[in-house]
Amino acid sequence: MLHPVGPLPAAVYWRRRLAVLVALLVLLGGLGWLLLSLVPGSGSSGPAASPTTAAAPAEPPALERVVPAVSGVRTPGTTAPPSAPPAPAGPTPGGSCTDEMLGLEVRTPGTAAVGAKPTFELVVVNTSPVPCVRTLDKQLQELVMVDAAGARVWGSNDCFPESSSDQRTLAPGEPVVFPVRWGGLTSEPTCTAERVTPSPGDYVLRGRLDTKVSGDAPLTIG
């Protein structure tokens, strides 16, 4: 085998043997490639998956099952504005008149002579839009006079207090007027001090209905 015998030169026989060897290797390589291509899943050149096989639904990644979606998370810039608080309820028709629902005013003649006995008025008015009920008893009403220095000069309940039972339904805007006549003399709550005629000058009167207090009304005595 290693020493070819024939009429041709030895190189010819070696070339022939080499060609046969190469052909044999090519044949073996082709057979091996064919066998590998027939094995399922052996590469991208294998048969395609059956078209009738339905694709399994993709399961969400584990992170999405734990962490909420970004669209469901409120950021400081997208925080919804707070809802407006409910409007406060208005006054109930036929309920009690609170101080905030009433107007209270004192009316004077403006001037009075020394020793005169003018009549003042305490005016109560329902300033709310609905009728309401208020107790207007005499013992709950009071007028007080003070001088320019703020000293108390006279009070309507000092010496001749009155009492009554007077509960009324006040219509919206309708005034109720209570006249009070002044005797022209000073007084104090116990009515034990000497009562004298006030000196000429400027004074103010203030009214009260239980816990509701009026503004000042001027009075000049001269």
Rank of each mutant, 00 (worst) to 15 (best):
V144R: 09
V153R: 02
P189S: 05
G72W: 09
S165E: 13
A62N: 04
V73C: 05
V12D: 08
F120I: 00
G32H: 06
P86Y: 03
S96P: 06
T192P: 00
L24N: 06
P81Q: 07
P85A: 15
V133W: 01
V22Q: 09
V153H: 02
D99I: 08
K138I: 00
V22N: 02
A171G: 12
A217T: 03
L25F: 11
P47R: 14
G30K: 02
L8S: 10
A54L: 13
P161W: 03
S164Y: 04
S165T: 14
P9F: 05
G215I: 10
E100R: 07
V213A: 12
L143F: 04
V73E: 08
T119I: 00
P118F: 01
A171V: 03
L25I: 13
D99A: 15
S71Y: 08
D158G: 06
P118I: 00
S37D: 14
P81R: 07
V133H: 00
L122Q: 03
P109D: 01
G201P: 01
V146W: 00
T98I: 03
V153Y: 00
R152C: 03
T186I: 05
G29S: 12
P60R: 14
P189Q: 05
T169L: 15
T75Y: 06
S45H: 10
R168H: 10
A55C: 00
G77A: 13
W182M: 04
G43P: 06
L36S: 09
L35K: 02
R17C: 05
V67H: 10
E105T: 14
M101C: 02
V133I: 14
L21G: 15
E64N: 13
T52Y: 11
W182N: 06
V20R: 15
V180T: 13
T211V: 11
L63D: 12
S44M: 05
G30F: 09
L63R: 15
P179S: 10
L219Y: 03
P175W: 06
V12Q: 06
P189A: 04
L28I: 11
C191M: 08
A84K: 05
T75D: 01
A54S: 12
T127H: 02
S156T: 04
D166T: 10
G46E: 04
L38Y: 02
P200W: 02
P93F: 08
I221H: 01
A48T: 09
A23E: 11
F120H: 04
L143A: 01
S83D: 15
P85F: 11
G201A: 12
A80G: 13
S83K: 13
A10N: 08
S187H: 04
K138P: 00
G150H: 07
V130P: 01
L185T: 11
V20D: 13
V73M: 12
R208K: 15
E174V: 14
L205M: 11
P82C: 01
E121W: 07
P61L: 03
G43E: 04
G90K: 11
L36M: 12
A58V: 15
P68W: 14
T78G: 14
T169G: 07
M1Y: 05
G29Q: 10
H3N: 14
A69V: 01
G95V: 06
S187T: 04
S163L: 09
G30D: 09
L104N: 06
V204Q: 09
D166A: 08
L31V: 13
R65D: 07
A217Q: 03
M1A: 10
W33T: 09
V204G: 01
V204I: 08
G150S: 06
